Simulated assay, not measured.
Amino acid sequence: MVDDSPGMEPEVPPTDLTALLEQIQHAGEGEERVSLEAILDSVGQRSFAPFLLIAGLITLAPLIGDLPGVPTLMATLVVLSAGQLLAGRKHVWFPRWLLTRQVSRERFQKAMGWMKRPASWVDRLLKPRLSRLTRPPAHLPVALTCLLIAMAMPPMEFVPFTANGAGLALTLFGLALLADDGLMALFAYMLTGGTLAVVVTSLA
């Protein structure tokens, strides 16, 4: 089943990591469990950058990212969103089986607390620069690179720490697009190359 509805758009689109986390923290309020659908609805379905950040942060987050199968689920999220970006869709849709994945409220809040601690420090590093690497049509190679990362993430579950590298690369790409920071995109490209090289070497 596919969810093709536009969803609830946030009143103010996130412009940095702190703003994104503030929106995500209110996902599924009042519920004992937080679904991926609630998290995605908290940031809307019009922008590729928040999807990359969500996938990267969830993969990196303790208590969530280390759960078996989570990197593969986040890879699916990236494949679907990147593919639709490349196809020129204005709204992103996801299959119901992906949207209904849930985590306990307690685990979610602990992970959010972990992610919010470095957020203000990260935001201070971000600024518009080298915009040729983030503004259209540069967002297309970013999407292709993220697609490659996502396709490599399932086997990364068997190579220690490489899923963390993939999650960090997705996070950096998301930050780069969110803040129009081409330098962050450069770091993400380099990290992607290094992580994929480790995976290929380990599985060869």
Rank of each mutant, 00 (worst) to 15 (best):
F158K: 12
T171P: 02
R33D: 00
Q102C: 14
A185G: 07
A38C: 07
L177H: 04
L77D: 02
M1T: 12
T59K: 02
S120F: 08
E22C: 10
F51C: 04
M156N: 10
A27V: 02
D3K: 05
L86C: 10
L86D: 00
L125G: 05
S35E: 01
G193R: 13
K127N: 11
I54W: 01
R132G: 13
Q102M: 14
R129C: 02
L196C: 08
I54H: 04
T134M: 05
G182W: 00
R33P: 02
R117A: 11
A19H: 08
T100A: 14
Q25S: 15
L147N: 09
K110M: 11
M1D: 06
M153V: 05
L73I: 04
L168M: 14
A55T: 01
Y189R: 13
D3G: 09
P141H: 01
I64N: 05
A176G: 12
M184P: 06
K127E: 10
A204R: 14
P6K: 07
A82E: 00
A38V: 07
L144H: 09
F173M: 09
P13C: 11
L172C: 10
F94K: 10
L183V: 07
G165P: 02
L191A: 06
T195D: 00
V12K: 12
M190G: 15
V142M: 08
T72Y: 04
